[in-house]
């Protein structure tokens, strides 16, 4: 029995090492393309910009994006698992990759931060990325005929509320009981402190949305601490689905 378990753990470790290696190679390839394409074009057309042209705007952007990226990588990793690699390679995390993972977890009845959740969530992120790349390619091909529809006032209004519609459709999956054999009793108690913190942030801190990445990290730590307290007091616990 112990031997079987040991083999299982080794297998999980082997798979985990492989998927992380693929992710790291993919990230390295992306970085190579991001810097390699401008380098090749600048060299071939003999129009390489002066180094000094790049310094000021690059520092400004790195200063602005860097801290947010750090908190986002750390904040999303527990939910996206190894899908974090493709999510950060293909972008659009908030409006595509995160909902893809959450929806996949709910449909498969698995939890994030478990081997099953990691596999199913990453699979959904991968298929979502494939579809986006294909649709963008089609968009380039049918650029002109699609323009009137996609730039219409109605489409513009609807797309302004895309993230709101997504949030709404994710609420049940996140805060609901889920489809697993067990449920968390009093689950809705868990996010109370994080919600209170976020509402206070929105009301008291100007442009709170620009601190979203940091707020997510703080909220994760606070929620786990609060959950542990509730668990120790017996307020929240894992019970069988049919248990009242």
């Amino acid at each position: 029995m112990n031997e079987d378990k040991k083999i299982g753990i080794l297998d999980e470790k082997t798979y985990s090492n492989q998927i992380h290696l693929i992710g790291r190679v993919g990230s390295a390839l992306l970085l190579m393309f991001m810097l390699g394409i401008p380098f090749v074009i600048g060299t071939v057309y003999d129009c390489m910009p002066k180094f000094s042209w790049l310094i000021q705007p690059s520092i400004a952007l790195l200063a602005m994006m860097g801290p947010t990226s750090v908190s986002e990588v750390l904040g999303y990793a527990p939910v996206l698992g190894s899908g974090n690699y493709i999510a950060f390679i293909t972008g659009n995390i908030m409006n595509l990759k995160l909902p893809a993972a959450i929806s996949a977890h709910a449909l498969a009845g698995v939890q994030p931060n478990t081997p099953e959740g990691d596999a199913v969530g990453t699979m959904a992120i991968a298929i979502s990325s494939i579809i986006t790349v294909i649709i963008c390619a089609i968009g380039v091909l049918v650029f002109i005929p699609m323009q009137p529809i996609l730039t219409s006032a109605a489409f513009k209004t609807a797309s302004n509320y895309l993230v709101h519609a997504l949030m709404g459709s994710m609420i049940l999956n996140t805060f609901g009981k889920g489809k697993g054999k067990t449920v968390i009793k009093n689950k809705l108690m868990l996010p109370l402190v994080a919600i209170a913190m976020s509402v206070a942030g929105v009301l008291l801190i100007p442009k709170f949305s620009s601190y979203q990445g940091y707020a997510m990290l703080v909220a994760i730590v606070i929620t786990i601490g609060w959950a542990y307290l509730l668990y120790k007091k017996g307020v929240v616990k894992v019970v069988n689905r049919d248990e009242k």
Binding site: T174, A194, Q212, I220
Partner: peptide
């Protein structure tokens, strides 16, 4: 494991 997603959504929704 449930806390991660609950925390992220708790921040995003009010924003």
């Amino acid at each position: 494991n449930a806390c991660f997603m609950l925390a992220i959504m708790s921040v995003i929704i009010p924003i």
